[in-house]
Structures are given as structure tokens and as C-alpha cells.
Design a protein around this nucleic acid. Sequence first.
DNA 1: AGAACTATGTTTTTT
DNA 2: ACATAGTTCT
Length: 731
Amino acid sequence: MQQSLFSDQHADKNGLAGELDLTALNEAQYAAVTHGQGPVLVIAGAGSGKTRTLVYRMAYLIGQGVAPESILLLTFTRRAAQEMLWRASRLTDQACRRIIGGTFHATSNMLLRRHGHHLGFGSGFTIIDRGDAEGIINLIKSSLGLAGKNKRFPSKRIIMNLLSGQVNKNRSLEDLVREDHAHLAEFIDDFRTIRRHYTEFKLEHGLMDYDDLLVNWHRLLTECGSAREEICSGFAHILVDEYQDTNLIQAEIVRLLAHGHDNVMVVGDDAQSIYSFRGADFHNIMRFPGQFPQARIIKLEENYRSTQPILSLTNAIIASATEKFTKTLFTRTDGGTRPRVVPARNESAEARYVADRIDQLHQDGTPLAEMAVLFRSGFHSFKLELELNSRGMAFEKRGGLKLTESAHIKDLLSFLRILANPWDNLSWNRILLQLDRVGQKTAHKVLAAISESDDPVAALAAYKAPPSWRSGLAALNEALGRMRQPDLTPSQQFDAAMAYYEPIFEKIYYDDHPKRRKDLEQVRTLIGGYSDLQSFLDDTALDPPETDTATLSGDDEEGRLILSTIHSAKGLEWDVVFVIGLAEGRFPQPRTVPGEQWEEERRLLYVAATRARKQLYLTYPRQMMTPDRKLHHTGMSPFLREISPGLYEIIGNTPMPAPALSPDQEHRARPRPQKTRSARLDFTPGMQVLHPLFGPGTVKSIPGPRRVEIRFDRHGDKILHLDYAKLEIIQ
DNA sequence: AGAACTATGTTTTTT
DNA sequence: ACATAGTTCT
């Protein structure tokens, strides 16, 4: 009997860490991991081990002799990418250094650097982030005289949505205006003008935003045969996690990358689709067999993460969804406590309750790293952060601002970006505004004077400034001169920029510069790993590093409590999970309209609740501050109200009367009774069977349709799916 | 008069 | 963090 597939010589050659124990997999996972050639679609529920399956497949392929660097591991959210690569590195030891993978954009960046000459941009393009794009829009708005209309002009967010029309949304400008913002119709011409200017601006300055990157990739792979050949031949296997988070163009790129061999395995869960606002479309999962007619479909339906009471509740959350999903989850984990719903008097009481519970659980032995607090929006945790700080409890907040999005980092990076691209108007604007007596208008004037020059830095040195800020400009010019000395490493350039920026920095952020200084030091460390400034800038634009608020101390071994937006918690799991702010008017978001948006909010709650292994707390304040600073009462989130109260326990001195449920809701919320089918494919308890991997065993029970539970002599109890199991009946 | 500075109010989620 | 409105400076 083959215990491990890695006891052969391939394992040592490729540096697999220890043995890969395939017997730990269930039947469907095993089928996915050991699948030979061709496309595979794995539809997997929450907690079904989908990332593990994907990573095992990678290790399995390496064990079969596939070169690690010819496997492409992709996913579409940063946190999930981190988790995936971490798991991969545990399995493959030194081979992991040769694995190519991460977020789609980070991988793009790597491929661009390797094959960039095909894109026709030469080396002179800069990748810009969302903040840059918004900055450009603002510049355009003011130069067109549209800024004055701000009072009635739509927010920058709406403009961004409209501008990204092509790639992220399948709707036209007119559709968007008609559907979502009918009152903005009169601005449609302005939108068009802004969009045209934005496109021109990017072309003129050699800038690419995220969407351009995708479009260019797609163009490259469809229009340039030799480039496609060169890129695709490098990857023998493509493994994609969180496939439901792809948008149309990304799904198409995945198909094109597999050109010639179709060795693609995608893993996704349509019930966990929470990124439609950036163009992701979970119907891509359903379209996959159309793209790859040979595709084999495998479902992972057993949940290994959560206890039954948690699973019953999460199943009830998703059961109310209008669109029916492709699978039902079950678990064999017994025991566990019912999820707790906690109404608190107000936000402070909610924060106190959560902090108290965490403190208690910690004292009882749950490590802080095994607990997490999740919420809909970044600012929902403010009260809790205050509470935790006042108690001296350390935590790590995820989601919200990235390191490179904070003002002081942007300030400093501006200098470096000028060095890489002296025509970067956005960065110039930022630098000029730091000078005393220079505001938006003056900066604009200076920019107009220097940006047409062959050497903007020299042009700035020659610029005749009025006496009020002449000395400030002189200092800037001197600093730029120092930074431009030849043969400086990126670190030395950073230090030169810092020497000039430091006094300004301390003045601007007089109240909290010690805290911000740590971020700057972090960038300093980061830049030390680069010998080429442009690579550093591209990497940070595409894949901004996380703010690390950690103060490295002795108890770092134990880890820290995580506070996270639900979006940033995707793909992770903890023993104890608190979901806070589950009040009406907070979850779903206040302006959510019924329909697709409403359903996405529901899936978001589903994602949050399915992060929990053992304990789940759902809390909400019964009193909240309205925008006009008045208190008003709120009830629990409509998503919670739909759930049968029998599935949870209410905590608190003033329990709410259980809301009456319609018989229909009552029925849907209850765990589904298992259907028993008469045709059981000849398996009955007590029967002796033989399995190619697990060896001999005895049929224990028939837990569901097309499933058998078998007690194996060597590997214990397992539930097998008859669609995949190659069982031999002995007697 | 025009530009810079200051106080104030509002914030979805993110590759 | 940013936009805007109101106030102060040149």
C-alpha cells in the first residue's frame, strides 16, 4: 500500500518538507489533488479545506517531478494569498522559493518584469494605485473648472466607479447613471470629459492603473502569439484559489495562460462572493465548464472547520438567499456551543462586553492569536480600539488604510518617484504643497512651468519664486540635488529624502510623529531589499505592505488579537470569532438597495460567521449615534432576524423578546433533515471493503446520499463519496 | 482680490 | 484622510 507519494527520489530532489500525508484527505479532496491532466473545477464550501487541497496538489505535482517554478499559484485577495503561500512553504521547504504565486497583480508585476518588452511600454511606464488615480481626477476636475460644482457634483467614489466602467462593470456610463444615480444625469457630459482627460493623462505620462494592467495583459495574450507562447510555455500547471473573486477579464486571462495544455485547477465558493463591487462575478464558476469543455467538476461539501451549532447558523444565514447555491455543507464534528447573540445597550457597552470576554477567554487559556473581531467597515471598531488600548491589550488591525496610503508615506515616496520619473506631476504636487506659503494654485503654476521641460528638476532650480517661499524652494532644490547624485542605492536615496523631509514631517504631524516615524522606518527596511528603485515603486503600488503596528515584545510568540474587516478576513479562521455591529442600519450598509447588493451583504455575513471554529459571538448595539449627533434605537440586523432563535443563545440582562417568525422562515431556518434514499449502491453496514489508498475497512453507516462511512483498519473513520471512491467489496 | 490657512464634518468593502 | 466652508494673510 502506498503511504506517501513522496518517498521516492523526486521528493529529495525538490526539497519537499517531510512526507505529504494524503490519507488525511477525504475522497473528493484526494480526487482533486491527484487529478492527472486537464481542467478541474472544484466547488467548495466554507471550511472544506479548499486551500489545503490546492496546496496539496501543488506538492503532489512537485512529487511527480513537475518543476516548482512551472507551477503558477494564484489568488485574488492579499490575505488569502499570504495564507496560501504560507501553507505552500510549509509543504515544500526550500522548493517554495521557486514557486511562483501570490495575488494576481503581484504575479502580473513579476511577469511584466520578465516579459515586459512585449507590452510596448518599454520600461517607461509607472503603475499607479487608487489614490493616485483619485488625485489625477481631482487635478482634472480643478483644471476644468468643475471643482466649483462640488456641492452638487458626485463624490469621487462615484466618479471612480464610472471611470472604471469598462473593466469592472458590465454596464455603460448611461446604465450606471440610470440605475444608481439618476439624479446625476445632468453631469453625464462632465463624466465623459473627465474620463477622456483621465485616459489622455495616463497615456501622456506613461501611467497604468490596475484596470489598464488587466486590459494590456489580455491584449498581449490574445494579439501577440509569440508572447503568449513565451509566457504560457513557462507554466505547466495553473492553480487558482478563490475563483469566485475573478472578474470577466481575469477569468479570460486564466484561460489564456493555460493555452496549449489546459492544466488549470480553480477552486471557488459561489456563496462567498463578496467582491462584486470591484467587478468580480461568481457566475465565472458556472462559466468555467463552458471555457473548458473537458472540465471535471468536484464538490467539497464536508466542513472541517466549525462545530455543528455554528454550521447550523451559517447554513441558516445562506439558506435565506434568493439565489440558490450549489451545495449544502455538513460536518461530523460533534459538540460545541450554540452561537451567542449579544444585544448591548450602546456601542461602548458592546466594546466593553467584547473586551471582557476576550480577557476572560485569554485567562482561561485561549491564545490571543486564536481570537478575532470582525466588522463591516473600518471605523466600526473605533470604540473597541479605544477600550482595548485603555486596558493595555495588544491587537492588530487589518483592513482600512494600507501603509502606502497614509499621508506621511506618500509624502516620502513622492521624492523617490520623482527620481524614477521626473514628469510625475502628482508627486511634484505633493512635494510643492509641503512648502510654506505654497497652496494648490501656486503649485499648479509651478507645475505648468516645469513639467514641459526636458529636466523638470533643473527647471525647478531655475524657477523664480517670490520672497515668501524662496528659501523653502532653495532647500528643496538642494535636497533634490543630493538625491540625484549618481550611483546612489535606493537606501541612500531614501536617506537623502528623509534628511530633507524630517523637519517638515515633524511640523505637519506634531501631535503623532513618533507613531508615524515607525512606518517610515518600516519603509526604510523594505527598500533595503531592492537594488533598483523602479522595482520597489512598482511593487509597492501593486501590493502595498501592511502597516505593522506590532511592537516586537517578548509575548510575540503567542501572537496578537486580530481586528479585521470581513473582507480582509476572507480565507482565514480562528477558534473564537466576534462579529460586532450587527445592528439594523449598520449591517447591511445603510444605503444597500434590495437585490444583488442586499444578497452580497448577506454573503458577507456568511463569510464572517464561517470563520469561527469553536465559538461565535454576534453582537450589536441597541443605541447608536445618528449623523446629527442624536441617539436613536436600533434592532438587530435583518439578517439575524430571519434566523430561527432556536439556533442561537441570547446573552444579556435584558433579553429581547424573540421576534415572531413566519412558518416559512421557521421551516427554512431549521437544519435540513437528511434525505434517505433507498438505492444505496449495494453498500450496507458491516460490509468489508478495500480502498486503494486507505486499505481494508468496514462499512459503518450510510450518512447521506451517495456517501458511505467506513471504519478503516489503519486510518480510522472516513466518509467517502461514491462518485469518487474506488471501493472494492470484499464480502 | 486671490491665495493660504484653519476648523469642521463625513467615512463601505479593495486587487 | 479628505473636502468644504469660513477666516486670515499678502
